[in-house]
Design a protein around this nucleic acid. Sequence first.
DNA 1: ATGTCGTAACGTTTACGA
Length: 260
Amino acid sequence: MKIASFNINGIKARLEALTNWLDEAQPDVAVLQEIKTVDEGFPHAPFEERGYNVETHGQKGFNGVAILSKHPLEDVQRGLPGDDEDEQARWIEATVMGEATSLRVCGLYLPNGNPAPGPKYDYKLAWMARQKARAAELLATEEPFLMAGDYNVIPQDEDAKRPEAWREDALALPQSRAAFRELVAMGFTEAFRARVQGPGHYTFWDYQAGAWNRDDGIRIDHFLLSPQAADRLTDTAIDKDIRGREKPSDHVPIWVELDV
DNA sequence: ATGTCGTAACGTTTACGA
C-alpha cells in the first residue's frame, strides 16, 4: 500500500497540480495539508472520479487537512485531542483496511511556530506535547499506525541546504528538535531516514529568492511509523520533480510503501 | 532588492500567514 503526504498550499489553487500528481503517482492513500478551505469548499468530484474516498477537516482561509483513500475510511476522527479551545484544523485520523491488516493513518499539519519566542511558538510546543499524548494512546493499541504530514521541524542540520539560515527559526530551534526527537524516541521509525542517509534531501523550497533554482530547501515533511507499521516498510521517496512544474506548491509529496 | 504565494474582504488593494 502506497501512502503519500502532500502539503498542497491551497486546494483551489492546486487542483490541477494535485490531480496530475495523483494520476502519475497513484497512491492508495494521500494525506493533504493546508487545504485552506472549509469542508464545504473542498471539491470531491475530481477525487471520487479517480476512485478516492474523501474526508476533510477544514477551516476558513488557513490550515486544514484531508485524507484521500482508494480503500474505505473508517472511524474518522477530526482534531487533535487535548485542548477543547483549539479551533485550528491540523489533525485527522482514519483507519484503512489493507489486505493483511488495518492501518490507522494520522494526517497532521504541525504549527509553524514563528516568530519564536512568542505565543505562536508556545502553541507549537503545546501542540507537540498533545501529539505525544495521542501517540502514546495509539502505541498502546499495538496496532500498525503512522503519523504523516508537514511537521514544520528540520530534524538535523543535514536536513537544510543552509542550516545557519534557520538557526533562530521555530523550525530548527533546539526545543523544536528536542520535541521531535522525543516523539520519535517513543518508539517510532522516521521512515525516510530509515532508508536514505546523508544531506541534500528536501521537501520544501520557499517561493522567495529563487530557493528552488538554488536547491535551497529543507526537509520538514515526515512519516513516523509505529513499530508494527515499521516492520512492513518496503520503500520511501520524495517526489522532488513536482516542485519544478507549473504553479507548484512550495512543498512536494513524500510517500512510503507498506506491505499491509 | 527583505525578492512569493494563497486566501479573504465593506476588494481593483491591503492584511495575514507561511
